[in-house]
């Protein structure tokens, strides 16, 4: 039985915006519109979707880098969404983030040692030699040479910098790592190194990952369970095998049909979606996907589909299955 680490319940993020003549009409941009999921201890939970679907906002809300508008994030019996101040600050050690851009996320004015040491200092590891030793150990663990600890981050390559970012995220022994597109800024050859490193570290340290990406191949490789997001909502949530072998939602089907196959002999029918993703400031009524859905029915235009568990562990929000 998987042990739940974090439960996200009905999480929402609305940004206020103005529209209409003179900005008189107040509207909310629904970046994330009521999503719920559970992260089990030791698993990798993939969050996938187009840009603007709210996947990064979800990760940022878990990190409290963006304050949630509504909803709960339950961790060890506490609702993190409502924590503030010092209490929140000390809980941060359990959640750490790996950022997409390994260039901008490391301070150009600090040595690698200072960057990785920073979380230890912030969370009160006073002993200097202990800090030193933990930084060295962490650098070796992520595949960096600890002799280079006094170099500055700009002296390293993109892949090496991402390793520094990973070391910084891991040095406090966190429970959950939120990886927000950790490989999408890297070369493909480096991507695989980083993905493998993340998997090795998970095996050794028992980490839980929330892995945010738009690349379905990477997500398939690393995740145990996957949630597909569209316009701030989860369309389908299932185990990796079941999602890729038997996608239920028309959106997931379209995404999976678009993954290139490296064998020219195999032909697959591609489902090409028409039109653009609608604006989250003015999302379509009913199912948000109905404007582009090849199987849209009348009910899709008016009624928002409930999320149902079609098979054990395979959730889908689509009227086709009601």
């Amino acid at each position: 039985m998987p042990e739940p680490l974090v439960q996200v319940k009905n999480l929402k993020k609305y940004y206020p915006a103005q529209s209409g003549i003179l900005g008189l009409k107040k509207v909310a941009v629904k970046a994330v519109d009521g999503i719920s999921f559970t992260l089990n201890r030791g698993e990798t939970f993939g969050l996938v979707g187009e840009s603007g679907c709210g996947k990064s906002t979800t990760g940022r809300m878990l990190m409290h880098l963006t304050e949630p508008t509504d909803g709960q994030i339950i961790f060890e019996g506490k609702d993190l969404a409502s924590l503030k101040g010092e209490e929140l600050r000390s809980e941060r050690r359990h959640f750490q983030m790996i950022f997409q851009d390994p260039y901008a996320s490391l301070s150009p004015r600090m040595s690698v040692r200072a960057i990785i040491e920073e979380p230890l200092i912030i969370h009160g590891v006073k002993d200097k030699s202990e800090r030193r030793e933990r930084v060295d150990r962490m650098m070796e663990l992520v595949g960096l040479n600890s002799d280079q600890a006094d170099r500055y981050s700009y002296e390293f390559s993109g892949g090496q910098r991402q390793r520094i970012g990973i070391a910084r995220a891991l040095v406090l022994n966190p429970d959950l790592i939120i990886a927000d597109e950790p490989v999408s800024a890297l070369d493909v050859s480096i991507q695989s190194q980083i993905v493998n490193l993340l998997q090795d570290l998970q095996d050794q340290l028992g980490l839980t990952y929330l892995f945010i990406a738009h690349d379905l191949s990477v997500i398939e490789h690393i995740s145990n369970r996957i949630a597909v997001m569209y316009l701030g909502r989860i369309m389908e949530l299932a185990g990796k095998k079941s999602l890729y072998a038997e996608p239920l939602h028309p959106y997931t089907q379209a995404l999976i049909s678009a993954i290139p196959i490296p064998d020219p002999q195999i032909k697959r029918e591609k489902i090409v979606l028409k039109g653009d993703i609608p604006s989250p400031a003015n999302p379509p009524a009913g199912c948000p996907f109905h404007t582009r859905c090849p199987k849209a029915m009348d009910i899709c235009r008016t009624v928002r589909p409930e999320t149902i568990e079609k098979q054990p562990g395979h959730f889908v929000a689509c009227h086709l299955y009601n």
């Binding site: 992520v142 390559s157 190194q193 493998n196 490789h221 993954i259 196959i261 490296p262």
Partner: peptide, 14 residues
């Protein structure tokens, strides 16, 4: 699918 081939262990970058 493609991923198994793409993602191979490479020499340590560090």
């Amino acid at each position: 699918m493609a991923t198994e081939k793409q993602i191979e262990t490479m020499e340590w970058a560090g």
